[in-house]
Computed example of a mutant assay.
Amino acid sequence: MADTMQFDLVAPERNLMSVSVREVRLPGENGDLSAMPGHAPAIVNLRPGLVTVIDEQGSEHQFAISGGFAEINNESLSLLAEIGRKKEEMDQDAFDEMMRAAERKKKAAEAEEQKHGAEEVVASAAKLLADMEALGTQIGLYKYSSDSSN
């Protein structure tokens, strides 16, 4: 078994990282997980949170994502983030953009619920918003109240 695997992190605006890695820690929708070389194939939905990458030299890199998904196999991990930034590039404006996107999804889900009774959609959107708040708290940028307006 190899000691490293290929890791690619892509966000809509750019490719954030493409390197050989020892380990990637992911904020999975159903719980956090680590992927290492030889990992069983999986596709994982991601919630907002920090992705931690340990490169082949043992250096740690962190990225804040607003969600997305990861495709894992024994030789590679490809992560497609809805919105992603290097942790050190996260500032209040970038976090605010991520929060506004989560708030829009929640409002759209609430409107859908009123039309079609889709409670599970609202619950999912509320969880997304709560996960964004947790991410902001973790990186020191959360400043919203639950009734903030856009």
Rank of each mutant, 00 (worst) to 15 (best):
V44C: 06
I43Q: 09
A111D: 08
Q57P: 01
Q57L: 12
A102P: 04
E88T: 04
E113C: 10
E97G: 13
L135F: 00
S20G: 08
A81C: 13
E120K: 14
N15R: 15
L77R: 03
E56G: 05
I65H: 01
M99P: 00
E23V: 03
G117V: 14
D55P: 03
E113K: 06
E23S: 12
K86D: 04
L129C: 07
P27V: 14
L26A: 08
A123C: 02
E82F: 10
S34C: 10
A109L: 06
T137E: 11
A101S: 12
E110I: 06
N45W: 11
L26R: 10
L77W: 00
M98Q: 02
A125F: 02
N45Y: 15
H39T: 03
N73C: 08
S78M: 07
S20Q: 12
V51A: 05
G68Y: 00
E120I: 10
N45E: 13
K86N: 06
A134W: 02
P37K: 05
A42T: 12
P37C: 10
V24M: 02
M99E: 07
L129N: 01
G68C: 06
F69P: 01
G38S: 06
Y144M: 08
L128E: 11
N73L: 07
K127W: 09
E75Y: 04
L26G: 04
L80N: 05
E75A: 07
N150C: 04
A40Q: 09
L80A: 11
A81P: 03
M1H: 14
I65Q: 02
D91C: 12
E23H: 07
M99N: 01
E97K: 15
A125S: 05
R14M: 08
S124A: 14
L141Y: 06
D8P: 00
N73P: 01
A94H: 08
E113R: 04
P48N: 02
A125C: 08
S66E: 02
Q92K: 15
G31N: 10
L77H: 00
H116A: 11
E71V: 10
I43L: 12
H116R: 13
F69V: 13
A64G: 09
S34E: 09
E56C: 10
A134Y: 04
M36V: 13
H116W: 11
M98I: 14
V122S: 04
M98T: 09
H39W: 05
R22T: 13
L50I: 15
S66H: 05
I72E: 00
R104Q: 15
A125Y: 02
V19G: 00
K143A: 13
E120Y: 12
T4A: 04
I54D: 03
M36N: 08
S124D: 14
G68R: 00
E112I: 09
A108Q: 13
S149N: 11
G140P: 02
G49D: 07
N150G: 09
L33P: 01
T52A: 05
N30G: 09
L33G: 03
K127N: 07
I65L: 10
N74H: 13
N45C: 11
R22I: 08
K87M: 13
